[in-house]
């Protein structure tokens, strides 16, 4: 029993990452009708936002402490981060410690801006082109973004540790222990997904966007500038992907190809959920995440060797062949 609960928990945190990326992908596809292969790169850029903030917070100046000497007998040089000198050592080190959660605030404007630039600068010109062209140009963009990040940050993964208070494990029941940060990640993902759905469901803006997703032309005829709203949705989708990346940093140290690794799986998730269906994307994300972690249980692997490597693809194939439009796909989308 414990093993099953543990696997569900394990699946939830991977599933949250899949669900968040798939949600953004579906938002873009549902609103703009564009298949965005650069979405994984946005996830990766989000993770590097937190790396950047961490570096900014650690900017420090050197002072010479005449009372102490280093091992050569010279006066000791002490590095003090600027934040520590501005806010006092205690507050300063707390800020540095909490750099990953703080990076959420830092990443939102950056990701929205990147989303705007991408949509207005590139994607806009591809609305009328075939889906294959959209896939290809965003694939090229993904390569470019990845290489730019590699140029500035190098090829090695960079650690972005979680705050001291949120590391370690939580004793959930007498037998189940689970890393705190993964619980945080899951709650964060649920909050973001809830916020996006609430935004679409309960605001006038969201209503207009949903109307535009259903019938773009009619909404335009009503005198609403739907393009402007869709651009904003692109920014929002980019921010969702970026935040998923920021918070994923402590689980897996960010490196420049993490986006591509997630992209392939998230596309499978989106297709399994059904192109253009937001609830489908989220459900499929969690479903595949949980199935993946179940398949990596020892008992299952001894029963069916190698199943943990292929379960996601296997499920995708079965679902696509039995339910042609995925779990909750609409008719006539991308066929």
């Amino acid at each position: 029993m414990d093993a099953i609960i543990l696997q569900v928990l394990n699946g939830l945190d991977k599933g949250s990452a899949y669900a968040l990326i798939a949600l953004g992908l579906t938002l873009i596809f549902g609103t703009l009708g564009v298949v965005n292969f650069a979405h994984g790169a946005l996830f990766m850029i989000g993770a590097f936002c937190s790396v950047t903030l961490q570096r900014i917070l650690n900017l420090s100046f050197e002072t010479v402490d005449p009372t102490r000497t280093d091992f050569l007998g010279n006066p000791l040089k002490v590095k003090t981060p600027y934040v520590e000198s501005w806010f006092g050592p205690e507050m300063g080190s707390t800020i540095i410690d909490w750099s990953v959660p703080l990076a959420i605030l830092f990443a939102i404007p950056i990701m929205i801006l990147i989303g705007f630039v991408m949509e207005r600068g590139l994607i806009k010109h591809f609305y009328k082109r075939p889906h294959a062209d959209q896939i290809l140009v965003t694939f090229g963009l993904a390569i470019v973004l990845q290489e730019v990040i590699k140029y500035f940050y190098g090829a090695n993964p960079i650690q972005t540790p979680a705050p001291e208070a949120l590391t370690g494990v939580a004793q959930l029941t007498s037998t189940i222990v689970y890393p705190i940060w993964r619980i945080v990640y899951f709650c964060f993902a649920v909050a973001i997904i809830g916020a996006v759905f609430a935004f679409l469901q309960f605001t006038t803006f969201g209503m207009v966007v949903r109307a535009g997703m259903a019938d773009r032309e009619t909404v335009g005829l009503l005198g609403i500038d739907i393009d402007k709203r869709f651009t904003l949705m692109f920014g929002l989708a980019a921010a969702v992907a970026g935040l998923a990346g920021v918070m994923y940093g402590p689980i897996n140290a960010p490196n420049y190809h993490m986006g591509m690794d997630f992209l392939v799986l998230s596309f499978v998730v989106v297709v399994v959920g059904g192109m253009g269906s937001l609830p489908g994307a989220v459900a499929a994300g969690f479903l595949l995440g949980i199935l993946e972690s179940f398949a990596s249980m020892k008992e299952v692997i001894t029963l069916v060797p190698g199943i943990n490597q292929i379960i996601i693809y296997l499920v995708a194939i079965v679902i696509l062949l039995t339910r042609p439009r995925g779990l909750m796909g609409r008719k006539g989308v991308m066929e």
């Binding site: 298949v35 889906h131 896939i135 392939v264 596309f267 499978v268 297709v271 192109m275 190698g306 490597q309 292929i310 693809y313 296997l314 995708a316 194939i317 696509l320 042609p324 991308m334 066929e335």
Partner: peptide, 18 residues
């Protein structure tokens, strides 16, 4: 369409993993 692309991708990734 994209469903075909994803199916072929899934088969290839499965062969790779296996």
């Amino acid at each position: 369409g994209i469903y075909f692309s994803i199916l072929t991708l899934a088969f290839a990734q499965m062969s790779f993993a296996l």
